[in-house]
């Protein structure tokens, strides 16, 4: 598939059953400029059953599991149509990044943050996007400062002996409150 509209797919081996997709994070979202790799498995019953798609690149988004990369999207489930193409799927995922559906979440923690503290959600999503997807940094001064503080918080937990990844997940889940994150890591 040619790379247009920032989506792309290639073979992983020569079986045609395992593919690797790539989508660019859409503009005006925390994912802007990020590069998201997707694992695509084509079932034997394709195209009468949907491809199985998961995010290989870690992402903080209400409809994508921050742990497994599993996706909650109707066309990958009961709204799949045999006439759809992988391009349709990738474009739909790209548009999912632009318009989250927090009321139909895959990751309940992220969805709750999205609804309760949207600014914190956006900054956390941006932090993950910069770290895992090489997304562009923020421009806004307040955001830049907030993200710098996130990095400091992670360093702080790492000095206590937690891994970077565990620290990031705990802090992200607890709105970057260090005490709450530590409590969560010890529990």
């Amino acid at each position: 598939m040619a790379e247009t509209a920032g989506v792309h797919v290639e073979l992983v081996d020569n079986s045609f059953l395992k593919l690797r997709g790539e989508i660019k994070g859409p503009p005006d979202t925390p994912f802007d400029g990020g590069k998201y790799i997707l694992d695509i498995t084509i079932p034997e019953t394709y195209p009468f059953n949907p491809p199985k798609v998961t995010f290989r690149t870690k992402i903080w988004h209400p409809n994508i599991s921050s742990v497994t990369g599993a996706i909650c999207l109707d066309i990958l489930k009961d709204q799949w149509a045999a006439a759809m193409t992988l391009r349709t799927v990738l474009l739909s995922l790209q548009s999912l990044l632009s318009s989250a559906e927090p009321d139909d979440p895959q990751d309940a923690v992220v969805a709750k943050q999205y609804k309760d503290d949207f600014t914190c959600y956006k900054r956390t999503a941006k932090h993950w996007a910069v770290v895992y997807a090489q997304a562009s940094a923020c421009q806004n001064k307040e955001d830049v400062e907030a993200l710098a503080l996130f990095d400091k918080n992670i360093q702080q937990l790492m000095q206590m002996g937690f891994s970077e990844q565990d620290s990031r997940v705990a802090l992200s889940s607890k709105n970057w409150n260090v005490e709450a994150a530590v409590e969560c890591l010890f529990s």
């Binding site: 599991s65 921050s66 742990v67 497994t68 599993a70 909650c72 489930k77 009961d78 895959q106 990751d107 309940a108 923690v109 992220v110 565990d166 997940v169 705990a170 992200s172 889940s173 969560c184 890591l185 529990s187």
Partner: peptide, 16 residues
């Protein structure tokens, strides 16, 4: 530790 966010989703059970 992981975010406590990822139960085997209800949808997947229904689909199975």
């Amino acid at each position: 530790m992981t975010a406590e966010a990822d139960p085997m989703s209800h949808d997947d059970n229904v689909i199975a």
